[in-house]
Amino acid sequence: MQKRDFLKKMIMLASSFGVASIPYVVARILAPGEIYNYSNHLRPPGALVDDKEFVKACIGCGLCGEICPPKCILFDKRSGGNAVNTPYINPETKACILCNKCMEVCPTEALIEVPREEVKMGLAQIDRSACYPWVDRGVCGACVAICPLGKKAIAFEFADMYRPYIKEEGCVGCGMCVEICPHPSLPIRIVEPGKGVITQHTV
């Protein structure tokens, strides 16, 4: 008889654990996982470099988005799996202006205050087969003019006027050049720092 009671209790406990996990299952089903292209899914400036660590630290409060002056920080609202409600920046529509406000307001260690030069969101990469000056379709220089870090990150090739190239040690990957680039095929991409290589190909 005691054995039966014990069994009953265990079944009750297991079923109540099952009931207790229902909300999490429902919430998780509502936000299915999705694999992103790095170039249009940058983390905000000052984010922990390891994305898993970033997701661990982020509580999904939305403060960084709420303080962003250009409103460039978006959120994985309906997808992302475990990374749901985490912030990201799509430089193709709106790029980060490196104002440091999101780092200051973040309550957790997800975004840590770092000086503008030490931000590591990624690395810009120019596809020289599409860039107007590189294929001799006129002069442009929009990316060089807009770069918030100026000559430290992007410059014109010596004696090749208006042909931009990225300086790997200076670029922080904010994506302003991606946003401003007039070419419809978006020849500039942001690649993962340390993993991408600046293209060396010539035309």
Binding site: Y24, A31, K52, V55, K56, C58, N82, V84
Partner: peptide, 14 residues
């Protein structure tokens, strides 16, 4: 427990 296993603050979702 779920937050610890998945490594994300899933509590905020519910």
């Amino acid at each position: 427990g779920v937050s610890a296993i998945t490594g994300s603050v899933l509590i905020s979702m519910i």
